[in-house]
Design a protein around this nucleic acid. Structure first.
Lengths: 193, 193
DNA sequence: GCGAAACCTTGATTTTCGTCAACGGTTTTC
DNA sequence: GAAAACCGTTGACGAAAATCAAGGTTTCGC
């Protein structure tokens, strides 16, 4: 239990056994079945979650009622809606399990307490957010500067395991495309090689 | 000198006078004339910069040779290329002064030293990156889910001062549009009200 | 103060992607 | 095990934005 959580933590910020045990007090395990929600729009995001097992998606519903996937997450990734988590205001996003999931939750109060009492946790969080920021920036740069074909290639290269486990129409949604267009990109790529 | 820097710092993490003086040792003032560069692609981003006065842009040149503006920054904002700053590897972005600028630089070594010795600096950086992440996420969500007209309105609402100080073709570039398309959006908006 | 850039707009044409629709194959579900 | 839902592909069409081109205005540099 919590294996992946502490593996990821130690990767960035090595912990003693005592420190691990101290943190464990604050962690809450949670299981979600496929299609269950960790967060629904309108609710406050009360926890950030590390995925021990399974996969999830975050999505947004636009004014026209269309869904747009904004993030995928696999084992070892941390998810949550940061604006809602920070502000304790209702979220506009949804987070749903794509497969049966085992999660480790850190509630807002636990998070605040750990930030206050444990410098290593503060460092860990800073590194986590820094990485998230850089990944998001890379995504934004790709979105702006690459052709569709190259964006799809970049996605496959960066996240080969997502491409395998997630239906294509969701990848299209993540890329901001219609499923038909992604299908055509793929057939274009197959023909030209 | 450093007024804006400490105003922003104190806003998030109040400092005593001694603490301010401690940090001041690490700060380097720098002036840039319009069109001068803080960072050019291929170089390592050696400092993060707070803008005391002036405005800047960050841009990327794509494989086809086209420029894409990825960020604007005004007084009180902090800029730099995080992936390059963190990794000390060459950057793929350029940061250029749009007006004459007065900057406050924190070098990588100063940054690392401050992180190590001063918990309040660590907190400040975490909050800074958290805000940057949330702003970038909001931009990404808008990009994916809104119509062009609404995206432009959202930009104007969020950054009215940028819209005033920056040429429209740069805003078009930031939004990933041709200048002509942005011009037509604007005339559409004027006609319908 | 004058010439040259830079900037914004408008029109005509082309390209690209979304939408609509139909089909076949696979997986779920009861 | 059959019906239903889901999924990916393909074709025809239409809408939206890019591109190309030209003209008019403002700003900048000397």
């Amino acid at each position: 239990m919590y294996e992946v959580f502490f593996q990821k933590f130690n990767q960035r910020t090595p912990l003693t056994e005592d420190e691990e045990n101290f943190i464990k007090q604050y962690l809450i395990p949670k299981k979600l079945r496929k299609r269950q929600y960790l967060l629904q729009e309108g609710d406050v995001c009360k926890s950030i979650a590390l995925i021990e097992k399974g996969s999830m998606r975050t999505y947004l519903v636009d004014p026209a009622g269309q869904e747009h996937i904004t993030a995928f997450a696999l084992e070892g990734w941390t998810i949550g809606d940061l604006p809602s988590f920070q502000s304790e205001l209702p979220s506009i996003q949804n987070i749903e399990a794509l497969e049966d999931c085992e999660l480790v939750l850190v509630s807002k109060s636990a998070h605040d307490e750990l930030l206050k009492t444990m410098p290593k946790y503060e460092i860990y969080i800073r590194l986590l957010i820094t990485d998230a920021y850089m990944a998001l920036q890379k995504r934004t740069l790709n979105m702006i500067s690459l052709s569709l074909d190259d964006r799809y290639k970049a996605f496959i290269d960066t996240y080969p395991n997502i491409a395998q486990r997630v239906p294509q129409h969701m990848i299209a949604s993540y890329m901001g495309l219609s499923p038909e267009t992604l299908s055509r990109i793929r057939s274009r790529m197959n023909n030209s090689k």
